[in-house]
């Protein structure tokens, strides 16, 4: 897996280059048979802090682009996780029930949230950002945050 990196102040954020990003920090990785794996970006997990609980919509749930597919409770906040792809949840990362910290430890790998059988991936992909575009969005967000300090 290859990454782009962005360092802002003391923080370094990584962006896996093999996937697409919802502007609110959820990645989408297309796989075989029109399935798309999703998870939280490194920036999203770092800015929200340690995950205490992760609840993903159960298998069989139908979700439309931007709707809540998971809710994550961290030491800082309750995080609304929008789906970057419309379709039906076909797999949920069961490991998160006992080790929600995987989202922090390995956001692009073992910390994935769900797999969705996409209903119109090409249309959804057109609404997502590639790694470079998402990095630029994060740069803007991070620099705004720095100005507030």
């Amino acid at each position: 897996m290859e990454f782009l990196e962005l360092t802002v102040d003391k923080f370094t954020f990584r962006f896996a280059t093999d996937r697409y990003y919802h502007p609110d920090g959820v990645w989408a990785l297309p796989e075989e048979d029109n399935r798309v794996r999703i998870g939280l970006s490194d920036f999203a997990q770092q800015s929200n802090g340690d995950v205490a609980f992760a609840e993903v919509k159960p298998v069989g749930t139908t979700v439309a682009f931007g709707e809540e597919v998971a809710s994550i409770e961290t030491i800082k906040a309750n995080v609304f996780v929008p789906t970057p792809v419309s379709g039906t949840v076909v797999e949920v990362n069961q490991a998160l029930e006992v080790r929600p910290e995987l989202i922090n430890e390995d956001p692009y790998g073992e910390g994935w949230l769900a797999v969705i059988a996409a209903s119109d991936w090409e249309a959804d992909r057109a609404r997502l950002l590639d790694a470079q575009a998402y990095l630029e969005r994060v740069r803007e967000i991070a620099e705004e945050e720095m100005k507030k300090r």
Partner: peptide, 9 residues
């Protein structure tokens, strides 16, 4: 504390 919170949501 995080582990304690996980036991007492």
């Amino acid at each position: 504390v995080l582990d304690a919170f996980r036991k007492h949501r």
